[in-house]
Amino acid sequence: MTLVLETNDLTVHHKTPRGPLRAVDGISIQVEAGETLGLVGESGCGKSTLARCVVGISKPTSGTIMLGDLEIKDGSRHRFQRARSVQMVFQDPSGALNPRLTVERLIEEPLKVHGLGKKAERKARVAELAAQVGLSDYHLARHPHELSGGQRQRVSIARALALEPGLLVCDEAVSALDVSVQAQVLNLFVDLQKRLNVAYLFISHDLSVVRYISHRIAVMYLGRIVEVGPAEEVWNRRNHPYTRALIDAIPDEAVRRDDIALLDGDVPSPVNPPSGCTFRTRCPYARERCAAEVPVLRDRGNRLQVACHFADEIEAANTVVETVRSGQARSDVPAHLRAAAH
């Protein structure tokens, strides 16, 4: 087991007139070679800031980042070495590609920067990379604006893979794409991982996408990880009330669900987060202890870790609800029951 990424108590605080904004507040994660760690959370939870720290375009305030054997202490100094171990795929496929360059030059650029191969060798490698992501010679001569969103995202992926990094950070990499194209790109990610054994730090607000693609899922709330574990453990056990709320809020095209309790209000400001457990202001289980004591990630069995004082209680309650609901969904509730639920 080799780790391609390990962060240790990483924090990023931005200075604001009203005090430090804790974008990332003490995060320790590990990603193994060939593994996908999904990172979910709502806007402002710090998932993008974390991604930017990992690839080196933001500087952590404290904490360390290990990329394989490369330990990064200062944010910007290791740009050149770091590039061989980690690359990034962005959300907006049009903004991530220089509009003046052809696809061929865009994919070749990292090879050139690192002086890999002679001109002819680079050309062959570009063709190989393009084929790997499903682009043809026709596309190589085009400019980004002549391609569709999905094709542009393929160019970004080919460019990111050019240096054969062990880790690819995908920041909302499929969020801007239409559903049918999103499926193509997700399939591509899966295929590439099988073939190249590349690991993904897959960041998305869409829990069903993260569940599909990830081996493990980490749920973030206000700069902290509240739950992390194998994808199906996180999804099925929902030990943290926030994870549960996130899953419940997904509009499901298979079942109409009007009966679920929704979270009230919005995410509090990260400048002035609540004391103790930051989720307590929206949590249906919140008690006195939550305001006083910050919950730490605790093992819950089967590699699941949850940061909640009452995880035991919630898991027990969930089990009851789940049995009832799964029975309902499968037998397709009779019409009179469904009408009553509305």
Binding site: I57, F90, D92, N98, P99, R100, V113
Partner: peptide, 24 residues
């Protein structure tokens, strides 16, 4: 993002300024 992407592939600031941003 394309400027950030150039930093991530390890390009020097000099090349980013004159090769990537300036032409735009």
């Amino acid at each position: 993002d394309f400027v950030q992407s150039c930093r991530i592939i390890g390009m020097s600031d000099f090349r980013i300024i004159f090769g990537q941003i300036l032409p735009n």
